[in-house]
Write a protein that binds this DNA or RNA. Structure first.
Lengths: 213, 213
DNA sequence: TTGTCTTTGTGAGTCACTTCACAGTAAGTA
DNA sequence: TACTTACTGTGAAGTGACTCACAAAGACAA
C-alpha cells in the first residue's frame, strides 16, 4: 500500500478505467477475474493489465485470478479516492454549464462545489445545482471549501490570467478547455482538453490510416 | 510535400497547435520565427520543434529561422486542412448542445453539419445553427453530406451501439465523450475524451507531484 | 503421488519518442 | 578575405512505456 515508486501517468489513466469497469462487474455479482478478461473490457492486452496491477503493488493468484473487491480497494487507495474531491469551475459559458450539469448526478468522489464568472447576471445564481460566485471571491472560496482542482472554461484570451489566479490561490491541478497551452509552475499539474484539436487529429487519421493504430 | 513516412500521432497533435499559434503570429504581422520562439509558445523545447518541422519535411534557414506563412501552408497540407471537414454529432444532450454551440462560430475547416438523436422533441429542430435529425436517418445523411468524422455524446450504455452504426455508415474517425472504451475495426480511428477520468488523474497528480511533470 | 492445465509475476527485449550535442551554414563585421 | 555569432538539421544516445516469453505455482484428476 506504500509503493512510493512513481506510477506513470498512463498507468493512472488506466487505473481510473479499471476501477470503473471493476465496479460494474462487482455490482453484477462477479467476484473474481483474469487479466485477459479485464484486458478485453479495457481494450488492451493481458500483459498490460498484469503489469499495471503489479505496478500498483497488488497481486492475484494463478488460478482464481484477481479478487475484484480488493483490487478496487487498492486502486481507490492509490487514487486517493477516499477523500471527496472539491472542484472549482471558472467560466460559466455554454461549455461550463454543460460540464456543471454533467456533474450534477455526481461522479463518485468528484464534486464541483463552486462556479465562478465575471458576468453579474450569473453571479449568485445556482446553475445545475452549483452556486455561482463572482471571480473576485475565488481565493476565499477556495480556502473555505478546500478546493485543489480547477476547471477552466473561459475564452483563450483569459485562460492564462485565470490560471495564474488559480495557482496563486493554491490550486494544484488544472483542467483546461481553452485552446492554449498554459504556463504553470512545476508544483502544479495542468491538462488540456481541446475538442477542436482532437477533431483535427482525428480527421487526419481518418484519412491516413493505412494500417495505423 | 509527399513524405509518406508515417508521422507520429504526437507530432500531429503538436502540428495542430503550431498551426494555431503561427496563424496568430501571422495575423499580427510577424513573418518569421526561430525554433526557440515557437517552443516558448507551445511550451516545449527548441529541439522538439526542429525535429517536428523536420518530420513534416519543411525547413528553415539558419539566420532567418522559419517562414511563418510557408510553414502554415505546409502544416495545413499535412493535415489536409484544405478540404472542409463535415462532422456529425450523435446525442443532443447537455454536452452535445454545448459542443454544437461551441462550434457555431465555426472553427476553420471543421463544421458540424448534422446532429442526431432519438428524442422526437429534438428531431427536425435547429439547435445552435445545426439541424437535428432522427438517428434512423444517420446513414443516408452521412452519404449525402459526405461526413467522415463523428462525435459521440450519448450515455455510456449506448455508445458502442452508436459506434457500430457509425462504422457501418462509413465514418472513419470517432470522438467519444462516453466513459467507455469503444471497439472499432482498425480501419477506424477512435479517441476518447473523458472529463471525469481526466479530473481523477489530475486529482492524483495534484497530490502526488513531488517533482512530477 | 505425479502429471497436466491455466494463469500469474517479471526479467529482458523492443519500440517509439525525445533530447543531446555538434557539424554545417548564412549573415554581419571589418 | 577571414572571424564571429546564432541558428538549423540530424545522427546518436537516452528515456519511458509496452510486449514477449517463460519460470513458478495453485487446482484438479487419477
Amino acid at each position: 500500500m506504500k509503493l512510493t515508486k512513481n506510477i506513470p501517468a498512463r498507468t493512472i489513466e488506466r487505473m481510473v478505467l479499471y476501477k470503473r469497469l471493476l465496479s460494474d462487474l462487482l455490482s453484477k455479482g462477479q467476484k473474481t477475474l483474469f487479466s485477459h478478461q479485464l484486458a478485453a473490457l479495457a481494450h488492451n492486452t493481458p500483459a498490460q493489465v498484469r503489469r499495471d496491477i503489479m505496478t500498483i503493488g497488488h497481486e492475484g493468484s494463478p488460478h482464481k485470478g484477481y479478487d475484484i473487491a480488493s483490487l478496487i480497494t487498492r486502486i481507490t487507495a492509490i487514487l486517493d479516492g477516499s477523500k471527496d474531491r472539491s472542484i472549482a469551475l471558472v467560466g460559466v459559458g455554454n461549455l461550463g454549464r454543460a460540464i456543471l450539469s454533467y456533474f450534477t448526478y455526481r461522479h463518485p468522489g468528484l464534486t464541483i462545489v463552486a462556479a465562478f464568472d465575471t458576468d453579474d447576471s450569473k453571479v449568485d445564481r445556482v446553475i445545475s445545482g452549483c452556486r455561482c460566485y463572482h471571480i473576485r471571491e475565488f481565493e476565499s472560496k477556495v480556502k473555505e471549501l478546500d478546493i485543489n482542482v480547477g476547471i477552466i472554461t473561459v475564452p483563450a484570451t483569459q485562460a492564462q490570467a485565470v490560471t495564474d489566479m488559480m495557482v496563486a490561490a493554491g490550486i494544484r491541478g488544472i483542467l483546461n478547455f481553452a485552446p492554449v497551452p498554459l504556463k504553470v509552475p512545476d508544483t502544479v499539474c495542468a491538462d488540456r482538453i481541446d475538442i477542436a484539436s482532437s477533431l483535427e487529429k482525428l480527421a487526419y487519421f481518418a484519412d491516413h490510416l493505412k494500417q495505423h493504430e
